Simulated assay, not measured.
Amino acid sequence: MTHGAGTGLLAREHTGAEVEALALELITKLAAGDGHVLLDLEIDGVRCLVLRGDRTGPVSLLSPRELEIARMVACGHPNKTIASVLEISTWTVASHLRRIFVKLDVTSRAAMVSRLASADRQLGGDPLELTRSQLLPEG
């Protein structure tokens, strides 16, 4: 089993001591503030990723996938392009956008981008900045 930033498998037959060791490692990393990835492991075929969030406000409400989609919307990409780049269906993109709208309490793409950009200016960063080369595959 790999602990920390690696990927490991936590099977049901693992002992309580092993689970306790993982929990202690997580607590130690939280206290130390070491990086963004605190724990990365697989449980029964499902990847579990514990990340440190160092932002507050609307951006912190969004999952990594939702933030990725919000960035693409901010670049002006339609749902069809987002779906193609992320290799998901347009229905999945629309579902993510509905959840984003609820979390940010907005009713349009423009309001979503404005809310995130406004919060970002207050924090002094630019999480919505993403170049075309990062969004679209080569070729």
Rank of each mutant, 00 (worst) to 15 (best):
M1T: 14
T2V: 06
A5P: 11
G6L: 10
T7W: 12
T7P: 12
T7N: 11
L9S: 10
L9Y: 07
A11T: 14
G16T: 08
A17S: 11
E18H: 14
E20N: 10
A23E: 07
A23T: 07
L26P: 06
L26A: 04
I27Q: 11
I27W: 06
I27R: 13
K29Q: 12
K29I: 02
A31L: 12
D34C: 07
H36G: 02
V37M: 07
L39D: 12
D40H: 09
D40P: 00
D40R: 08
E42K: 13
V46F: 08
C48W: 13
C48S: 01
C48L: 15
L51M: 11
G53W: 00
D54R: 14
D54H: 14
R55E: 09
G57M: 03
G57H: 04
V59L: 13
L62T: 01
E66T: 02
E66S: 04
E68G: 01
A70L: 05
A70V: 00
A70D: 01
A70M: 08
R71I: 00
M72C: 04
M72H: 00
A74M: 03
C75K: 06
K80T: 14
K80N: 10
K80H: 14
K80I: 07
T81R: 15
V85T: 02
E87W: 05
I88V: 15
I88S: 10
T90I: 00
T90Y: 00
T90E: 14
W91P: 02
A94I: 03
I100S: 05
F101C: 03
V102K: 09
L104H: 04
V106K: 03
V106F: 04
T107F: 08
S108N: 11
A110V: 04
A110S: 12
M112F: 03
L116P: 01
L116N: 04
S118M: 07
A119K: 05
A119Q: 02
Q122D: 11
G124T: 06
G124D: 00
G125E: 15
L128T: 03
L128W: 05
L128M: 05
E129N: 09
L130I: 11
T131K: 12
T131A: 13
Q134S: 13
L136R: 11
P137N: 08
G139Y: 02
G139W: 07
